[in-house]
Amino acid sequence: MEITGIISGLIIGIVIGALGRLVIPGRQRIPIWLTIVIGVVAALIGTAIAAALGVADTGGIDWIELGIQVALAALGVSLSVGMYGRRRE
Rank of each mutant, 00 (worst) to 15 (best):
L75H: 05
I61G: 08
L72I: 12
V41K: 03
R21N: 11
V41T: 05
V15T: 05
Q69H: 05
I12Q: 03
V37H: 04
R87Q: 10
L34F: 04
Y84G: 00
I61E: 07
L66V: 08
A48N: 09
L19T: 11
A51M: 14
L22Q: 11
G60R: 09
L22S: 09
L72E: 04
E89M: 15
T47F: 02
A73G: 10
A18W: 04
T35Y: 02
V81K: 06
L19H: 07
I6R: 03
I11M: 06
I12S: 01
E89N: 15
V81P: 00
A74W: 00
Q69N: 12
Q28F: 03
V77L: 13
L75N: 02
G46D: 03
P25I: 07
V41M: 06
I6V: 10
E65F: 03
A51Q: 14
L34R: 04
A71Q: 08
T58M: 10
M1K: 07
V77C: 07
T58Y: 08
I61V: 15
T35E: 02
Q69A: 02
L75P: 04
A74N: 05
G9M: 01
R29P: 06
L79K: 07
R27G: 11
S78L: 13
G26W: 06
T35S: 10
I6H: 06
G59A: 13
S78Y: 12
I7P: 05
V81A: 12
T4H: 09
I11E: 01
I30D: 03
I12Y: 01
L10S: 10
R29W: 10
G17S: 08
I24H: 04
T58P: 02
Y84D: 06
G54S: 10
I49N: 00
G13M: 01
R87E: 09
